[in-house]
Design a protein around this nucleic acid. Structure first.
Lengths: 207, 207, 207, 207
DNA sequence: TATGAATGAGCATTCATTCAT
DNA sequence: TATGAATGAATGCTCATTCAT
C-alpha cells in the first residue's frame, strides 16, 4: 500500500532524470555527484536511490529514455512527408532545429554518453541501438527513394545513412563542445545541396 | 639514474605519454588513475610526476602533441598531390587508413578528449585548434579547386570543410565506441562519390 | 542517522574538536593525520569532513574556540576580585592552576599552535588576538592599580602586561615540552614576590 | 683517501646547516623538504645525505650546535662583568640584542624546535640541555649575588632563573610569530626595573 | 664525490552508498 | 517515504630516501 500514487512516482522519476541530464551535461558523468543531482532535483540523496539503484542506472536510463527515443521521434515527426527526398531534407532540418532549439542539451548528452560508452557496455549498447534505429530509418527513406526511382539507383542506402548520421552526430558533438565557427544553418544547407547533387539524378539539367 | 641525457628524458616522456594514451583510451580520463598509467609505463607513480606536474597535464599534452599535430600531418602527407580534387580524395583515404591502421587509438583519444573538453577549457581550446587547423587545410583545398575552376563555383569552402571534418570525427567517434556496422571503406567510397557529384561540375556527362 | 538535532551536531562537533586537540597535542599538527583524529573521536574519516571542511579548519577552530576564549575566561574568573593587586595575583594563580589541573592540554596546544602560526596567517592572527586580549586585560588591571595609587606610578601597564604574558606562555611552553625541573608553584610564588616588590610602593617598610 | 680536505667538508657541513636553519625557520620542520634545503644550500639532495643521514639529524644538529651553544655563548660574552647585578643586566641586554640584531633567526628556530620536541625525544633532550645550561648560568649569577650580599637574601636562584628564562623564551617565541605590539627594548627595560626592585635591597632609599 | 631520477609508502580529501530516524 | 549523517574505499599527489651514473 504505497502512500503516493504511481503517477506521482513517475513524475518524480522524470524530475530526477531531468536533473541528472542537466548535471551530466554540465559536468560529465564521472565528475557529477549524486549530491549534485539531488540538489538539482530539489531532493535528498536518499530519495534518488529510491528511484535509481545506482548512479550508473541514471546514465543508462537517460541513454534509453532520452537518446534511445530519437528514432521513434524522427519517424513520428517526418511521417507525414510523402516524398523521400523531402523527408530526408526534413530530417536534416529537424536535426538542426533540435540541436539549436528544441533539445539543446541532447548533443551534450550524446557526447557525455559516448565517453561513458568506452567503459560501460550497457551504455554502449544503448547508444548503438539509437544509432542503428536512426540509421535504419534513414536507410529506409533512401531505399524507398531508390525503389521509387526518385534517387540515383547505385547508392547504398545503409552506407549513406551511416555517413549522414555520423556527420550529424559529429556536428552535434563539436557544436556542443563550443567549437567556435560552426554555422549550423549553413552546414545544413550545404549538406542538403550535397545530397541533392548526389541522390537526385541529373537535377542540374532541369533546375 | 640521474644526469641522464636529454634524449633519454625525452624518450621517457614519450613512453609516459604513450602509456597515458593507452590507459585513457581504455578507461577514459576520469576513471584512469595515475597508478594505472605508471603501471602501463612500467614506472612508479612518482616518476610520472617528474615529467608531468598533474594528471590533467597528461591529457593536455596528448591533446596538443597527438591530436594537435593532425593538421600538420595531413598537410605533409598530401602535399605532393597537385590536383585539388585528388588531394581531397587523398585526405579521405588518409583519414580512413589512419583510423583503421596507422593510429587506431586516435579516434578513441578524440572521443575521450571531447568528453573532457566539456569541463576543461584548455583541453577544449586544444581540440578547437586541431579542428580549426584541419578545417583551414581542407577549406584551402576546396577554395583552390574553386579558384582553378575545378570545383563548382557556388560552394562555400569553409562550410563544406567543417561538414567534412564533422563527419570524419563523427565516424571516428562511432567507430571507436565499437559501433557494429560501420564499414569504413564503404563509407569512404560513398563520401567520395557524394563529393564528386557535388563539387565537380557535370562530371557525369563526360565520365 | 540524519535529521539529528542541532544539539547533537554541536555535541559531535565538540567531540571532534576534543579529539583533534588530543591528537594535535600528542603529535603536532603536521604529523597528526585526519585518520588519527577520526579514530580518537570514534568516527570515520568522512564524518570529520562533515563538520570541518579541511584539516586546517580544525586547527583554526581550536585556536579560536579554545585558546581564543582565554581572555574572556580570565576576565570572568577574576571579575569578583576588587583590588587590582589581588586580581593580578589571582591571575597568576589561575594560570598556574589552569596549566597544571584544569586545562593541562592548553599549554601544549599553545605550543603546537605557535609552531603552525609561523606558516599559517589565520592561525597567527588567532594567536595574536588571544595575546592581545589577555594583554589588554592585564594591562587594564595594572592601569587601574596605577590610577588608584595602589601601584607605583611609573610603570608602563602595557609593557609589563606583555612581559607577564610572555613569561606565562614561556613557562607554559616549557612546562609542556616536559622540561624537567620547572616547579610551577615555586615559580608562581617568586613571580608574585617580584611583582609585589616592583608594583607596590615601599611595601617592605610596613610589612 | 678522501678527495676533499676535512676543512672543506666541515665548511660544507656548516653551509648545509645554515641552509637547513633558514628553511626550517621559514617553513617549520615538517613542511620543509630536503629538496628545499638542498636548493637553499646550492647543492643536490644527495649531497645533503652525505653529511646528514636523515632529515631529523639536521634538526638535531641545529638544536645541539646552534641552540645548545647558547649557555657557553652567554658565559663568554658576560664573563668580564664582575658585579652580579651588572652581569644579569648584561644578560638581558644580550638576549634582546641577539633576538633583534645578531641572531634574529634563533627565536624562530627555538619555536620550531619546541614544536618538534613534542614528538622527538632527542630534540626534547637537546632543548632541555640548553634550558638547563642557561638556567644554571643565570642561577649561578643570582646565587653569587646573594652570597656576596648584593641581592636580597631570600630569593631562590634556581626558580628566579627559570622564571627569567621562561620569560625570555616566551618573548622570543611571540616576537617571532610576529606579535604586533611587542616592544623588545621597552620590555627589557621594564624587566630590569622589576629585577632591580626585587633583587637589590632597598635601592629606592639611596637612588 | 656529487647528482638527481626513481621509488613507493603515506596523506588529505571525495563520494557512492547505506540506514537510523 | 524521505532525509542526510555516517561510512570507508579509492585517488591524486608529495617527499624522504636510495643508488646508478
Amino acid at each position: 500500500m504505497p502512500r503516493v500514487s504511481p503517477a506521482h512516482m513517475e513524475r518524480r522519476r522524470e524530475a530526477i532524470l531531468n536533473a541528472a541530464m542537466e548535471v551530466f551535461i554540465a559536468k560529465g558523468y564521472q565528475v557529477a555527484t549524486v549530491g549534485d543531482i539531488a540538489q538539482q532535483a530539489g531532493l535528498s540523496v536518499g530519495a534518488i536511490y529510491r528511484y535509481f539503484p545506482t548512479k550508473a542506472d541514471l546514465m543508462l536510463a537517460l541513454v534509453r529514455e532520452r537518446l534511445g527515443r530519437a528514432p521513434a521521434l524522427f519517424a513520428r515527426l517526418t511521417a507525414r512527408v510523402e516524398d523521400p527526398w523531402e523527408r530526408l531534407v526534413r530530417c536534416v532540418e529537424l536535426f538542426t532545429a533540435a540541436l539549436r532549439v528544441r533539445h539543446p542539451g541532447t548533443g551534450r548528452l550524446l557526447l557525455v554518453t559516448m565517453a561513458e560508452a568506452v567503459q560501460n557496455g550497457e551504455v554502449r549498447r544503448g547508444l548503438h541501438d539509437r544509432f542503428a534505429g536512426l540509421a535504419d530509418y534513414v536507410a529506409g527513406i533512401i531505399a524507398e527513394g531508390v525503389a521509387r526511382g526518385r534517387f540515383r539507383p547505385d547508392v547504398d542506402p545503409r552506407t549513406v545513412a551511416a555517413l549522414l548520421l555520423s556527420m550529424a552526430d559529429g556536428v552535434a558533438v563539436y557544436w556542443v563542445t563550443g567549437a567556435p565557427d560552426l554555422e549550423l544553418n549553413a552546414m545544413g544547407q550545404s549538406l542538403v545541396a550535397m545530397l541533392r547533387s548526389y541522390l537526385l539524378p541529373e537535377p542540374l539539367l532541369k533546375e
